[in-house]
Amino acid sequence: MEPKKIVITGGPGSGKTSVVQKLQEEGFTCIHEISRSITLEARSQGIPQLFLSDPLLFSKRILEGRIAQFKSVSKTDGPYVFFDRGIPDVIAYMDCAGQPYDNSFTDACKNYTYDQVFLLPPWEEIYTADNERYEDFREALLLYGFLKRTYEKYGYKILEVPIGTITERVTFIVNHLKNNNV
Score class of each variant (00 low, 15 high):
residue 104 S to N: 06
residue 5 K to R: 15
residue 39 T to G: 08
residue 129 A to L: 15
residue 181 N to E: 15
residue 155 G to R: 13
residue 179 N to C: 15
residue 157 K to F: 10
residue 19 V to Q: 00
residue 21 Q to I: 14
residue 55 P to K: 06
residue 125 E to N: 11
residue 91 I to Q: 05
residue 9 T to E: 05
residue 100 P to D: 08
residue 120 L to Y: 02
residue 169 R to E: 11
residue 67 I to R: 11
residue 108 A to M: 02
residue 47 I to A: 07
residue 114 Y to K: 02
residue 91 I to F: 04
residue 54 D to F: 09
residue 168 E to N: 08
residue 169 R to F: 01
residue 51 F to P: 09
residue 153 K to I: 09
residue 9 T to D: 09
residue 128 T to L: 03
residue 80 Y to E: 03
residue 55 P to R: 07
residue 109 C to E: 10
residue 11 G to H: 03
residue 103 N to W: 10
residue 9 T to W: 10
residue 117 V to P: 02
residue 108 A to F: 02
residue 73 V to H: 01
residue 33 E to T: 07
residue 155 G to P: 08
residue 24 Q to A: 15
residue 48 P to W: 10
residue 57 L to A: 11
residue 55 P to E: 06
residue 122 P to V: 01
residue 35 S to P: 08
residue 19 V to P: 11
residue 13 G to A: 12
residue 7 V to Q: 00
residue 113 T to K: 11
residue 66 R to M: 10
residue 97 A to M: 01
residue 167 T to M: 14
residue 174 V to E: 04
residue 99 Q to L: 06
residue 124 E to L: 11
residue 103 N to Y: 09
residue 82 F to C: 00
residue 153 K to E: 14
residue 176 H to S: 13
residue 147 L to I: 04
residue 115 D to S: 03
residue 45 Q to N: 13
residue 3 P to Y: 01
residue 127 Y to D: 05
residue 173 I to Y: 02
residue 128 T to W: 02
residue 151 Y to D: 02
residue 94 M to H: 06
residue 73 V to S: 06
residue 47 I to F: 07
residue 140 A to H: 04
residue 83 F to Y: 09
residue 153 K to G: 12
residue 29 T to R: 12
residue 176 H to K: 13
residue 114 Y to M: 03
residue 101 Y to P: 04
residue 99 Q to P: 05
residue 71 K to S: 07
residue 164 G to Q: 00
residue 167 T to A: 15
residue 17 T to M: 14
residue 138 R to Q: 15
residue 167 T to R: 12
residue 62 I to C: 12
residue 116 Q to S: 08
residue 112 Y to N: 01
residue 134 Y to M: 07
residue 171 T to R: 14
residue 4 K to F: 12
residue 122 P to I: 01
residue 51 F to Q: 05
residue 33 E to C: 07
residue 29 T to D: 10
residue 3 P to D: 04
residue 40 L to E: 08
residue 107 D to G: 07
residue 42 A to L: 01
residue 47 I to H: 04
residue 148 K to G: 05
residue 85 R to C: 05
residue 110 K to C: 08
residue 78 G to C: 03
residue 136 D to M: 02
residue 172 F to T: 04
residue 129 A to D: 13
residue 179 N to G: 15
residue 133 R to P: 00
residue 70 F to S: 03
residue 76 T to H: 12
residue 78 G to S: 04
residue 121 P to Y: 03
residue 99 Q to H: 04
residue 44 S to T: 08
